[in-house]
Design a protein around this nucleic acid. Sequence first.
RNA 1: GGCCCUAUCGUCUAGUGGUUAGGACACCAGGUUUUCAUCCUGGCAACCGGGGUUCGACUCCCCGUAGGGUCACCA
Length: 518
Amino acid sequence: MRFILNTMLSKEIRVRFAPSPTGPLHIGGVRTALYNYLFARKYGGKMILRIEDTDQNRFVKGAEEYIFESLSWCGIQFDEGVNEGGPFAPYRQSDRKSIYHRYAMQLIESGNSYYAFDTPDELDAMRKKLESEKALNTSYSSVSRLTMRNSLTLSKQEVDAKLNSGANYVIRFKTPENEDIQFTDIIRGEITVRSSALDDKVLFKSDGMPTYHLANVVDDYFMKISHVIRGEEWLPSLALHVLLYRAFGWGDEMPKFAHLPLILKPDGKGKLSKRDGDRLGFPVFPIEWISPENSEVSSGFRESGYFPEAFVNILAFLGWNPGTEQEMFSMDGLIASFSLERVGKSGARFDPDKAKWYNHQYLIQKDDSDLLEDFRSILSGKGIQETDDRIAKIIGLVKERSNFVKDFWEQSYFFFERPGSYDSQMIKKIWKENTSEIMNSFEKRLRNQDDFDVVHLDAMIKEFTEEQQIVMGQVMTPMRLALVGAAMGPGVTTIMELIGKDEVLKRINRMLEFIKTN
RNA sequence: GGCCCUAUCGUCUAGUGGUUAGGACACCAGGUUUUCAUCCUGGCAACCGGGGUUCGACUCCCCGUAGGGUCACCA
Protein backbone atom coordinates (compact mmCIF):
# COMPACT_ATOMS: atom_id res chain seq x y z
CA MET A 1 0.00 0.00 0.00
CA ARG A 2 2.74 2.36 0.98
CA PHE A 3 4.61 1.41 -2.16
CA ILE A 4 1.63 2.09 -4.36
CA LEU A 5 1.11 5.43 -2.73
CA ASN A 6 4.73 6.33 -3.20
CA THR A 7 4.82 5.45 -6.85
CA MET A 8 1.69 7.46 -7.40
CA LEU A 9 3.15 10.44 -5.68
CA SER A 10 6.55 10.04 -7.21
CA LYS A 11 5.38 11.32 -10.56
CA GLU A 12 3.34 14.45 -10.60
CA ILE A 13 0.43 14.35 -13.00
CA ARG A 14 1.16 16.81 -15.77
CA VAL A 15 -0.94 16.97 -18.90
CA ARG A 16 -0.96 19.34 -21.80
CA PHE A 17 -3.33 20.59 -24.41
CA ALA A 18 -1.28 21.40 -27.47
CA PRO A 19 -3.32 22.97 -30.25
CA SER A 20 -2.02 24.34 -33.48
CA PRO A 21 -3.17 27.91 -34.20
CA THR A 22 -4.38 27.17 -37.70
CA GLY A 23 -8.00 28.20 -37.28
CA PRO A 24 -10.93 27.82 -34.94
CA LEU A 25 -10.90 25.02 -32.42
CA HIS A 26 -13.32 22.26 -33.37
CA ILE A 27 -15.44 20.77 -30.56
CA GLY A 28 -13.35 17.61 -30.76
CA GLY A 29 -10.37 19.72 -29.77
CA VAL A 30 -12.31 21.34 -26.96
CA ARG A 31 -13.28 17.93 -25.68
CA THR A 32 -9.64 16.85 -25.71
CA ALA A 33 -8.78 19.95 -23.70
CA LEU A 34 -11.65 19.19 -21.32
CA TYR A 35 -10.58 15.60 -20.68
CA ASN A 36 -7.03 16.74 -20.05
CA TYR A 37 -8.32 19.35 -17.64
CA LEU A 38 -10.60 16.93 -15.79
CA PHE A 39 -7.78 14.43 -15.48
CA ALA A 40 -5.34 17.02 -14.17
CA ARG A 41 -7.78 18.44 -11.63
CA LYS A 42 -8.95 15.05 -10.51
CA TYR A 43 -5.44 14.00 -9.57
CA GLY A 44 -4.24 17.36 -8.36
CA GLY A 45 -1.90 17.68 -11.30
CA LYS A 46 -0.95 20.47 -13.66
CA MET A 47 -2.66 21.50 -16.87
CA ILE A 48 -0.43 23.03 -19.49
CA LEU A 49 -1.22 24.93 -22.67
CA ARG A 50 1.42 24.62 -25.35
CA ILE A 51 1.05 26.22 -28.74
CA GLU A 52 2.32 24.06 -31.57
CA ASP A 53 3.05 26.55 -34.29
CA THR A 54 5.94 24.90 -36.08
CA ASP A 55 4.26 25.31 -39.44
CA GLN A 56 4.63 28.96 -40.29
CA ASN A 57 2.69 28.53 -43.52
CA ARG A 58 -0.44 27.52 -41.71
CA PHE A 59 -0.40 30.27 -39.13
CA VAL A 60 -3.76 32.00 -38.94
CA LYS A 61 -4.13 35.40 -37.38
CA GLY A 62 -6.36 35.40 -34.34
CA ALA A 63 -6.42 31.63 -33.94
CA GLU A 64 -4.40 31.68 -30.73
CA GLU A 65 -6.68 34.27 -29.18
CA TYR A 66 -9.64 32.23 -30.32
CA ILE A 67 -8.28 29.20 -28.51
CA PHE A 68 -7.73 31.13 -25.29
CA GLU A 69 -11.17 32.67 -25.39
CA SER A 70 -12.91 29.41 -26.20
CA LEU A 71 -11.30 27.47 -23.37
CA SER A 72 -11.81 30.31 -20.97
CA TRP A 73 -15.51 30.43 -21.86
CA CYS A 74 -15.70 26.71 -21.07
CA GLY A 75 -14.06 27.24 -17.71
CA ILE A 76 -10.95 25.29 -18.63
CA GLN A 77 -8.04 26.85 -16.84
CA PHE A 78 -4.32 26.37 -17.22
CA ASP A 79 -1.58 26.21 -14.64
CA GLU A 80 1.21 26.76 -17.12
CA GLY A 81 1.17 28.02 -20.66
CA VAL A 82 1.82 30.85 -23.06
CA ASN A 83 -0.23 33.27 -20.97
CA GLU A 84 0.42 31.80 -17.54
CA GLY A 85 4.15 31.25 -17.89
CA GLY A 86 5.72 28.53 -15.83
CA PRO A 87 8.93 26.69 -15.03
CA PHE A 88 9.30 25.32 -18.54
CA ALA A 89 8.68 28.51 -20.49
CA PRO A 90 8.51 29.36 -23.28
CA TYR A 91 5.35 27.39 -24.13
CA ARG A 92 5.09 28.42 -27.75
CA GLN A 93 7.07 26.14 -30.01
CA SER A 94 8.18 28.90 -32.34
CA ASP A 95 9.84 30.43 -29.30
CA ARG A 96 11.61 27.16 -28.56
CA LYS A 97 13.09 26.85 -32.01
CA SER A 98 16.70 26.64 -30.87
CA ILE A 99 16.03 23.57 -28.75
CA TYR A 100 14.88 21.28 -31.51
CA HIS A 101 17.87 21.45 -33.79
CA ARG A 102 20.08 20.33 -30.95
CA TYR A 103 18.04 17.18 -30.41
CA ALA A 104 17.77 16.46 -34.10
CA MET A 105 21.56 16.59 -34.17
CA GLN A 106 21.77 14.31 -31.17
CA LEU A 107 19.85 11.73 -33.11
CA ILE A 108 22.17 12.07 -36.08
CA GLU A 109 25.17 11.58 -33.83
CA SER A 110 23.65 8.48 -32.27
CA GLY A 111 22.89 7.08 -35.70
CA ASN A 112 19.13 7.30 -35.26
CA SER A 113 18.57 9.87 -37.96
CA TYR A 114 20.17 11.18 -41.10
CA TYR A 115 20.30 14.10 -43.49
CA ALA A 116 18.27 13.88 -46.67
CA PHE A 117 18.65 16.17 -49.67
CA ASP A 118 15.93 14.91 -51.96
CA THR A 119 13.83 17.45 -53.78
CA PRO A 120 10.03 17.27 -53.84
CA ASP A 121 10.24 16.07 -57.44
CA GLU A 122 12.58 13.29 -56.48
CA LEU A 123 10.31 12.21 -53.66
CA ASP A 124 7.40 12.20 -56.01
CA ALA A 125 9.30 10.12 -58.55
CA MET A 126 10.27 7.65 -55.84
CA ARG A 127 6.67 7.22 -54.77
CA LYS A 128 5.48 6.71 -58.33
CA LYS A 129 8.18 4.18 -59.01
CA LEU A 130 7.37 2.19 -55.88
CA GLU A 131 3.68 2.28 -56.65
CA SER A 132 4.27 0.99 -60.16
CA GLU A 133 6.35 -1.82 -58.70
CA LYS A 134 3.47 -2.60 -56.31
CA ALA A 135 5.84 -2.26 -53.41
CA LEU A 136 4.46 -3.05 -49.94
CA ASN A 137 5.74 0.19 -48.53
CA THR A 138 5.73 3.09 -50.98
CA SER A 139 7.18 5.61 -48.59
CA TYR A 140 10.63 6.83 -47.69
CA SER A 141 11.55 3.81 -45.65
CA SER A 142 14.26 1.43 -44.61
CA VAL A 143 14.40 0.01 -48.13
CA SER A 144 13.83 3.05 -50.33
CA ARG A 145 16.20 5.28 -48.39
CA LEU A 146 19.12 3.42 -49.90
CA THR A 147 18.12 4.65 -53.35
CA MET A 148 17.82 8.27 -52.33
CA ARG A 149 20.19 11.18 -51.80
CA ASN A 150 20.98 11.21 -48.11
CA SER A 151 23.81 10.88 -45.64
CA LEU A 152 23.34 7.12 -45.72
CA THR A 153 24.06 6.83 -49.45
CA LEU A 154 26.36 9.80 -49.98
CA SER A 155 29.95 9.95 -48.83
CA LYS A 156 30.87 12.01 -45.82
CA GLN A 157 32.63 14.50 -48.11
CA GLU A 158 29.59 14.90 -50.31
CA VAL A 159 27.34 15.42 -47.31
CA ASP A 160 29.67 17.97 -45.72
CA ALA A 161 29.97 19.79 -49.01
CA LYS A 162 26.22 20.03 -49.38
CA LEU A 163 25.76 21.16 -45.80
CA ASN A 164 28.50 23.78 -46.14
CA SER A 165 27.10 25.08 -49.39
CA GLY A 166 23.82 25.76 -47.65
CA ALA A 167 21.87 23.20 -49.64
CA ASN A 168 18.34 22.45 -48.46
CA TYR A 169 18.16 19.43 -46.23
CA VAL A 170 15.83 17.70 -43.84
CA ILE A 171 16.61 15.32 -41.04
CA ARG A 172 14.78 12.03 -41.21
CA PHE A 173 14.29 9.40 -38.56
CA LYS A 174 16.08 6.16 -39.33
CA THR A 175 13.34 3.68 -38.61
CA PRO A 176 14.61 0.31 -37.41
CA GLU A 177 14.19 -2.31 -40.09
CA ASN A 178 12.32 -5.22 -38.61
CA GLU A 179 11.21 -4.74 -35.12
CA ASP A 180 7.93 -5.20 -33.29
CA ILE A 181 7.14 -2.02 -31.47
CA GLN A 182 4.91 -2.67 -28.50
CA PHE A 183 3.21 -0.08 -26.40
CA THR A 184 0.15 0.48 -24.27
CA ASP A 185 -2.64 2.91 -24.73
CA ILE A 186 -4.73 3.55 -21.62
CA ILE A 187 -7.95 3.45 -23.60
CA ARG A 188 -7.09 0.79 -26.17
CA GLY A 189 -4.70 -1.51 -24.41
CA GLU A 190 -1.73 -3.26 -25.98
CA ILE A 191 -0.83 -2.32 -29.52
CA THR A 192 1.90 -3.82 -31.65
CA VAL A 193 3.23 -2.29 -34.85
CA ARG A 194 5.85 -3.74 -37.14
CA SER A 195 8.53 -1.15 -37.82
CA SER A 196 8.78 -2.14 -41.47
CA ALA A 197 5.34 -0.64 -41.96
CA LEU A 198 6.65 2.73 -40.82
CA ASP A 199 8.40 5.33 -42.91
CA ASP A 200 11.38 7.54 -42.21
CA LYS A 201 9.49 10.59 -41.03
CA VAL A 202 10.97 14.03 -41.40
CA LEU A 203 11.88 15.31 -37.96
CA PHE A 204 13.48 18.56 -38.94
CA LYS A 205 12.35 20.61 -41.89
CA SER A 206 14.44 22.56 -44.36
CA ASP A 207 13.01 25.82 -43.01
CA GLY A 208 14.81 25.21 -39.75
CA MET A 209 11.70 24.17 -37.83
CA PRO A 210 10.98 20.77 -36.35
CA THR A 211 7.98 18.74 -37.42
CA TYR A 212 5.28 17.87 -34.94
CA HIS A 213 6.85 14.53 -34.15
CA LEU A 214 10.16 15.90 -32.96
CA ALA A 215 8.85 18.99 -31.22
CA ASN A 216 6.13 17.06 -29.49
CA VAL A 217 8.39 14.39 -28.06
CA VAL A 218 11.11 16.80 -27.00
CA ASP A 219 8.66 19.19 -25.37
CA ASP A 220 6.66 16.52 -23.62
CA TYR A 221 9.85 15.10 -22.22
CA PHE A 222 11.30 18.36 -20.98
CA MET A 223 7.98 19.62 -19.71
CA LYS A 224 7.73 16.41 -17.71
CA ILE A 225 4.39 15.48 -19.19
CA SER A 226 3.08 12.37 -17.43
CA HIS A 227 0.08 11.61 -19.65
CA VAL A 228 -0.51 12.43 -23.27
CA ILE A 229 -4.25 12.60 -23.85
CA ARG A 230 -5.00 13.42 -27.46
CA GLY A 231 -7.25 12.54 -30.39
CA GLU A 232 -7.31 9.18 -32.09
CA GLU A 233 -5.87 10.67 -35.26
CA TRP A 234 -2.50 10.48 -33.53
CA LEU A 235 -2.62 6.79 -32.91
CA PRO A 236 -0.84 5.86 -36.16
CA SER A 237 2.16 8.00 -35.20
CA LEU A 238 2.43 6.66 -31.68
CA ALA A 239 4.82 3.92 -32.80
CA LEU A 240 7.16 6.57 -34.17
CA HIS A 241 6.91 8.58 -30.97
CA VAL A 242 7.75 5.53 -28.89
CA LEU A 243 10.75 4.91 -31.11
CA LEU A 244 11.82 8.51 -30.67
CA TYR A 245 11.67 8.33 -26.88
CA ARG A 246 13.83 5.23 -27.03
CA ALA A 247 16.29 6.75 -29.48
CA PHE A 248 16.75 9.68 -27.12
CA GLY A 249 17.27 7.30 -24.25
CA TRP A 250 14.10 8.50 -22.55
CA GLY A 251 12.24 5.23 -22.84
CA ASP A 252 11.86 4.84 -19.09
CA GLU A 253 10.40 8.29 -18.63
CA MET A 254 8.00 8.10 -21.52
CA PRO A 255 4.56 9.51 -20.70
CA LYS A 256 1.51 7.29 -20.70
CA PHE A 257 -0.76 7.64 -23.70
CA ALA A 258 -4.52 7.85 -24.07
CA HIS A 259 -6.04 8.26 -27.52
CA LEU A 260 -9.56 9.61 -27.49
CA PRO A 261 -12.21 8.44 -29.95
CA LEU A 262 -13.36 10.89 -32.59
CA ILE A 263 -16.57 12.88 -32.72
CA LEU A 264 -18.55 11.82 -35.75
CA LYS A 265 -21.15 13.63 -37.80
CA PRO A 266 -24.81 13.14 -36.74
CA ASP A 267 -25.74 11.37 -39.94
CA GLY A 268 -23.89 9.63 -42.72
CA LYS A 269 -20.25 8.81 -42.45
CA GLY A 270 -17.10 10.40 -41.22
CA LYS A 271 -15.94 12.80 -38.61
CA LEU A 272 -17.79 15.93 -37.72
CA SER A 273 -16.91 18.91 -39.87
CA LYS A 274 -17.95 22.51 -40.22
CA ARG A 275 -20.01 21.57 -43.27
CA ASP A 276 -22.20 19.25 -41.16
CA GLY A 277 -22.98 22.07 -38.80
CA ASP A 278 -23.93 24.39 -41.63
CA ARG A 279 -25.98 21.69 -43.30
CA LEU A 280 -27.85 20.53 -40.19
CA GLY A 281 -28.05 23.87 -38.45
CA PHE A 282 -25.94 23.52 -35.36
CA PRO A 283 -22.56 24.87 -34.33
CA VAL A 284 -19.37 22.85 -34.53
CA PHE A 285 -17.20 25.43 -32.81
CA PRO A 286 -17.30 26.63 -29.20
CA ILE A 287 -17.51 30.30 -30.09
CA GLU A 288 -18.07 32.15 -33.32
CA TRP A 289 -15.15 32.43 -35.70
CA ILE A 290 -14.86 34.81 -38.60
CA SER A 291 -12.17 33.81 -41.02
CA PRO A 292 -9.60 36.58 -41.48
CA GLU A 293 -9.07 35.40 -45.05
CA ASN A 294 -12.55 35.26 -46.52
CA SER A 295 -14.73 36.58 -43.69
CA GLU A 296 -16.60 33.31 -43.66
CA VAL A 297 -18.53 32.89 -40.41
CA SER A 298 -18.45 29.69 -38.39
CA SER A 299 -21.17 29.72 -35.79
CA GLY A 300 -20.38 29.01 -32.16
CA PHE A 301 -22.20 27.30 -29.33
CA ARG A 302 -21.87 30.46 -27.29
CA GLU A 303 -23.54 32.64 -29.90
CA SER A 304 -26.20 30.00 -30.49
CA GLY A 305 -27.30 30.41 -26.92
CA TYR A 306 -25.67 27.48 -25.18
CA PHE A 307 -24.56 27.95 -21.61
CA PRO A 308 -20.92 27.06 -21.07
CA GLU A 309 -21.85 24.57 -18.35
CA ALA A 310 -24.28 22.85 -20.74
CA PHE A 311 -21.68 22.79 -23.48
CA VAL A 312 -19.12 21.25 -21.14
CA ASN A 313 -21.65 18.67 -19.95
CA ILE A 314 -22.51 17.75 -23.53
CA LEU A 315 -18.87 17.41 -24.51
CA ALA A 316 -17.99 15.37 -21.45
CA PHE A 317 -20.65 12.82 -22.34
CA LEU A 318 -19.46 12.43 -25.91
CA GLY A 319 -17.21 9.48 -25.28
CA TRP A 320 -17.30 9.28 -21.53
CA ASN A 321 -19.91 8.28 -18.97
CA PRO A 322 -19.79 7.89 -15.21
CA GLY A 323 -21.29 4.39 -15.19
CA THR A 324 -24.28 5.66 -13.25
CA GLU A 325 -27.53 7.07 -14.52
CA GLN A 326 -26.63 10.62 -13.67
CA GLU A 327 -26.41 12.84 -16.73
CA MET A 328 -26.20 16.32 -15.34
CA PHE A 329 -22.71 17.20 -14.22
CA SER A 330 -21.15 20.47 -13.20
CA MET A 331 -17.46 20.95 -13.88
CA ASP A 332 -16.70 20.03 -10.27
CA GLY A 333 -18.89 16.98 -10.56
CA LEU A 334 -17.07 15.94 -13.70
CA ILE A 335 -13.72 16.40 -12.02
CA ALA A 336 -14.81 14.19 -9.16
CA SER A 337 -16.20 11.45 -11.41
CA PHE A 338 -13.91 11.49 -14.41
CA SER A 339 -11.57 8.67 -15.27
CA LEU A 340 -9.82 7.67 -18.47
CA GLU A 341 -10.88 4.09 -17.87
CA ARG A 342 -14.47 5.07 -18.53
CA VAL A 343 -13.72 6.73 -21.84
CA GLY A 344 -15.16 4.67 -24.68
CA LYS A 345 -13.22 3.29 -27.60
CA SER A 346 -15.56 4.01 -30.46
CA GLY A 347 -16.38 7.27 -32.16
CA ALA A 348 -19.45 9.13 -30.96
CA ARG A 349 -21.93 10.83 -33.23
CA PHE A 350 -22.86 14.30 -32.16
CA ASP A 351 -26.59 14.52 -31.45
CA PRO A 352 -27.94 18.08 -31.83
CA ASP A 353 -31.26 17.15 -30.21
CA LYS A 354 -29.63 15.91 -27.07
CA ALA A 355 -27.47 19.01 -27.00
CA LYS A 356 -30.61 21.14 -26.98
CA TRP A 357 -32.10 19.01 -24.25
CA TYR A 358 -29.04 19.58 -22.11
CA ASN A 359 -29.29 23.31 -22.57
CA HIS A 360 -32.96 23.16 -21.66
CA GLN A 361 -32.10 21.38 -18.43
CA TYR A 362 -29.63 24.07 -17.49
CA LEU A 363 -32.05 26.79 -18.53
CA ILE A 364 -34.88 25.60 -16.30
CA GLN A 365 -32.66 25.13 -13.30
CA LYS A 366 -31.33 28.67 -13.47
CA ASP A 367 -32.89 31.42 -11.37
CA ASP A 368 -35.09 33.80 -13.33
CA SER A 369 -32.95 36.68 -12.16
CA ASP A 370 -29.84 35.06 -13.68
CA LEU A 371 -31.50 35.07 -17.08
CA LEU A 372 -32.70 38.63 -16.79
CA GLU A 373 -29.81 40.48 -18.41
CA ASP A 374 -29.73 38.26 -21.47
CA PHE A 375 -33.43 38.60 -22.10
CA ARG A 376 -33.43 42.30 -21.42
CA SER A 377 -30.86 42.87 -24.12
CA ILE A 378 -33.08 40.98 -26.57
CA LEU A 379 -36.00 43.19 -25.55
CA SER A 380 -33.89 46.32 -25.82
CA GLY A 381 -33.04 45.30 -29.35
CA LYS A 382 -36.74 45.49 -30.09
CA GLY A 383 -37.06 48.84 -28.39
CA ILE A 384 -38.84 47.43 -25.37
CA GLN A 385 -38.08 48.71 -21.89
CA GLU A 386 -39.40 46.82 -18.91
CA THR A 387 -38.81 46.60 -15.19
CA ASP A 388 -36.59 43.84 -13.83
CA ASP A 389 -39.49 42.55 -11.83
CA ARG A 390 -41.76 42.15 -14.81
CA ILE A 391 -39.06 40.60 -17.01
CA ALA A 392 -38.17 38.10 -14.31
CA LYS A 393 -41.80 37.18 -13.88
CA ILE A 394 -42.22 36.57 -17.60
CA ILE A 395 -39.03 34.50 -17.75
CA GLY A 396 -40.45 32.32 -15.01
CA LEU A 397 -43.51 31.73 -17.15
CA VAL A 398 -41.75 30.79 -20.37
CA LYS A 399 -38.44 29.17 -19.58
CA GLU A 400 -39.90 25.69 -19.31
CA ARG A 401 -41.03 25.92 -22.91
CA SER A 402 -37.68 27.17 -24.16
CA ASN A 403 -34.31 25.63 -24.89
CA PHE A 404 -32.46 28.92 -25.13
CA VAL A 405 -32.87 32.45 -23.86
CA LYS A 406 -33.33 33.47 -27.47
CA ASP A 407 -36.55 31.36 -27.51
CA PHE A 408 -38.08 33.56 -24.83
CA TRP A 409 -39.32 36.15 -27.27
CA GLU A 410 -41.44 33.88 -29.40
CA GLN A 411 -42.82 32.36 -26.21
CA SER A 412 -43.69 35.68 -24.65
CA TYR A 413 -44.11 38.33 -27.35
CA PHE A 414 -47.77 38.74 -26.40
CA PHE A 415 -46.76 40.26 -23.07
CA PHE A 416 -45.16 43.11 -24.95
CA GLU A 417 -47.22 43.58 -28.07
CA ARG A 418 -50.56 42.59 -29.57
CA PRO A 419 -50.66 39.45 -31.63
CA GLY A 420 -49.66 40.14 -35.20
CA SER A 421 -52.07 37.55 -36.53
CA TYR A 422 -54.63 35.03 -35.41
CA ASP A 423 -54.14 31.33 -35.96
CA SER A 424 -56.76 30.60 -38.64
CA GLN A 425 -56.83 26.90 -37.83
CA MET A 426 -57.66 27.71 -34.26
CA ILE A 427 -60.38 30.19 -35.20
CA LYS A 428 -62.02 27.62 -37.39
CA LYS A 429 -61.90 25.09 -34.64
CA ILE A 430 -63.11 27.08 -31.66
CA TRP A 431 -65.05 30.11 -32.87
CA LYS A 432 -68.65 28.92 -32.88
CA GLU A 433 -71.66 31.04 -33.89
CA ASN A 434 -72.35 32.11 -30.28
CA THR A 435 -68.72 32.82 -29.42
CA SER A 436 -68.80 36.47 -30.41
CA GLU A 437 -71.89 36.90 -28.26
CA ILE A 438 -70.18 35.28 -25.29
CA MET A 439 -67.12 37.42 -25.77
CA ASN A 440 -69.23 40.54 -25.94
CA SER A 441 -70.88 39.85 -22.63
CA PHE A 442 -67.57 38.78 -21.14
CA GLU A 443 -66.01 42.03 -22.27
CA LYS A 444 -68.80 43.97 -20.58
CA ARG A 445 -68.36 41.94 -17.44
CA LEU A 446 -64.65 42.56 -17.48
CA ARG A 447 -65.15 46.31 -17.57
CA ASN A 448 -66.58 46.14 -14.07
CA GLN A 449 -63.75 43.96 -12.79
CA ASP A 450 -61.46 45.94 -10.51
CA ASP A 451 -59.28 43.27 -8.94
CA PHE A 452 -57.32 42.23 -11.97
CA ASP A 453 -55.22 39.39 -10.62
CA VAL A 454 -55.25 35.66 -11.26
CA VAL A 455 -57.19 34.75 -8.15
CA HIS A 456 -60.00 37.23 -8.67
CA LEU A 457 -60.12 36.71 -12.40
CA ASP A 458 -60.38 32.94 -12.02
CA ALA A 459 -63.24 33.36 -9.54
CA MET A 460 -64.95 35.85 -11.79
CA ILE A 461 -64.70 33.67 -14.85
CA LYS A 462 -66.03 30.69 -12.96
CA GLU A 463 -68.99 32.74 -11.86
CA PHE A 464 -69.49 34.08 -15.37
CA THR A 465 -69.53 30.63 -16.99
CA GLU A 466 -72.02 29.40 -14.41
CA GLU A 467 -74.30 32.33 -15.09
CA GLN A 468 -74.08 31.82 -18.81
CA GLN A 469 -74.43 28.05 -18.48
CA ILE A 470 -71.31 27.47 -20.53
CA VAL A 471 -68.07 25.60 -19.91
CA MET A 472 -64.74 27.23 -19.15
CA GLY A 473 -63.31 26.50 -22.54
CA GLN A 474 -65.95 28.59 -24.24
CA VAL A 475 -64.49 31.71 -22.72
CA MET A 476 -60.90 30.71 -22.05
CA THR A 477 -60.03 29.55 -25.54
CA PRO A 478 -61.39 32.60 -27.39
CA MET A 479 -59.68 34.73 -24.79
CA ARG A 480 -56.40 33.01 -25.48
CA LEU A 481 -56.89 33.63 -29.15
CA ALA A 482 -57.59 37.30 -28.54
CA LEU A 483 -54.64 37.76 -26.20
CA VAL A 484 -52.01 35.53 -27.80
CA GLY A 485 -53.24 34.82 -31.29
CA ALA A 486 -52.41 31.14 -31.00
CA ALA A 487 -52.87 28.07 -28.85
CA MET A 488 -49.81 28.59 -26.71
CA GLY A 489 -48.53 30.32 -23.65
CA PRO A 490 -49.14 30.40 -19.92
CA GLY A 491 -52.55 30.44 -18.26
CA VAL A 492 -55.05 32.92 -19.70
CA THR A 493 -55.67 34.72 -16.42
CA THR A 494 -51.95 34.90 -15.78
CA ILE A 495 -51.56 36.70 -19.09
CA MET A 496 -54.51 38.94 -18.27
CA GLU A 497 -53.04 39.98 -14.96
CA LEU A 498 -49.69 40.79 -16.51
CA ILE A 499 -50.88 42.83 -19.44
CA GLY A 500 -53.60 44.66 -17.50
CA LYS A 501 -57.23 45.48 -17.88
CA ASP A 502 -57.07 48.18 -20.54
CA GLU A 503 -54.96 46.10 -22.87
CA VAL A 504 -57.09 43.01 -22.33
CA LEU A 505 -60.23 44.91 -23.28
CA LYS A 506 -58.54 46.33 -26.35
CA ARG A 507 -57.44 42.90 -27.50
CA ILE A 508 -60.91 41.43 -27.05
CA ASN A 509 -62.47 44.17 -29.15
CA ARG A 510 -59.76 43.85 -31.74
CA MET A 511 -60.48 40.14 -31.95
CA LEU A 512 -64.22 40.70 -32.27
CA GLU A 513 -63.61 43.24 -35.00
CA PHE A 514 -61.36 40.81 -36.82
CA ILE A 515 -64.04 38.09 -36.70
CA LYS A 516 -66.72 40.47 -37.93
CA THR A 517 -64.69 41.59 -40.93
CA ASN A 518 -63.32 38.21 -41.95
C1' G B 1 -4.44 -0.12 -51.29
C1' G B 2 -0.83 -0.77 -46.60
C1' C B 3 -0.97 -0.09 -41.39
C1' C B 4 -3.80 0.94 -36.97
C1' C B 5 -8.40 1.47 -34.27
C1' U B 6 -13.58 0.36 -33.59
C1' A B 7 -18.51 -2.49 -33.63
C1' U B 8 -25.26 -3.08 -27.95
C1' C B 9 -32.00 0.31 -29.64
C1' G B 10 -32.26 5.79 -35.05
C1' U B 11 -28.49 8.57 -31.49
C1' C B 12 -25.38 8.74 -26.68
C1' U B 13 -24.52 4.65 -23.72
C1' A B 14 -24.72 0.71 -19.14
C1' G B 15 -23.19 -4.16 -19.28
C1' U B 16 -16.70 -7.28 -18.01
C1' G B 17 -19.63 -15.76 -18.83
C1' G B 18 -25.65 -17.14 -16.39
C1' U B 19 -29.76 -10.03 -16.80
C1' U B 20 -37.12 -10.09 -18.62
C1' A B 21 -30.04 -6.74 -22.08
C1' G B 22 -30.77 -1.10 -18.07
C1' G B 23 -30.88 4.42 -18.67
C1' A B 24 -31.05 9.06 -21.58
C1' C B 25 -32.30 11.84 -26.32
C1' A B 26 -35.65 11.40 -30.33
C1' C B 27 -40.31 9.20 -31.71
C1' C B 28 -45.47 7.27 -30.58
C1' A B 29 -49.81 6.72 -27.14
C1' G B 30 -52.43 7.95 -22.65
C1' G B 31 -52.90 11.20 -18.25
C1' U B 32 -52.34 16.25 -16.04
C1' U B 33 -52.76 21.27 -18.12
C1' U B 34 -59.30 25.20 -20.57
C1' U B 35 -54.08 25.91 -25.00
C1' C B 36 -48.79 25.09 -25.86
C1' A B 37 -44.70 23.52 -23.10
C1' U B 38 -43.27 21.21 -18.62
C1' C B 39 -44.51 16.98 -15.80
C1' C B 40 -46.28 11.71 -14.99
C1' U B 41 -47.34 6.78 -17.07
C1' G B 42 -46.77 3.44 -20.90
C1' G B 43 -44.93 1.91 -25.79
C1' C B 44 -41.65 1.24 -30.01
C1' A B 45 -36.62 -0.06 -30.56
C1' A B 46 -30.31 -3.13 -30.06
C1' C B 47 -26.15 -7.22 -28.90
C1' C B 48 -22.98 -6.79 -37.49
C1' G B 49 -22.25 -12.12 -39.61
C1' G B 50 -19.83 -16.90 -39.27
C1' G B 51 -16.92 -20.15 -36.70
C1' G B 52 -14.71 -21.71 -32.19
C1' U B 53 -13.69 -21.94 -26.34
C1' U B 54 -17.37 -23.19 -22.53
C1' C B 55 -22.41 -26.71 -19.18
C1' G B 56 -23.54 -21.71 -20.83
C1' A B 57 -21.71 -16.43 -24.61
C1' C B 58 -23.56 -9.47 -25.84
C1' U B 59 -19.34 -10.55 -22.82
C1' C B 60 -13.26 -14.52 -24.37
C1' C B 61 -10.51 -16.16 -29.26
C1' C B 62 -10.29 -16.41 -34.72
C1' C B 63 -12.10 -15.12 -39.59
C1' G B 64 -15.19 -12.17 -42.34
C1' U B 65 -18.13 -7.65 -42.96
C1' A B 66 -18.90 -2.66 -41.98
C1' G B 67 -17.28 2.01 -40.18
C1' G B 68 -13.36 5.26 -38.80
C1' G B 69 -8.33 7.08 -38.57
C1' U B 70 -3.70 7.46 -40.94
C1' C B 71 -0.12 7.05 -44.70
C1' A B 72 3.15 15.52 -46.21
C1' C B 73 9.43 19.22 -45.25
C1' C B 74 0.43 19.73 -41.65
C1' A B 75 -0.52 19.38 -36.93
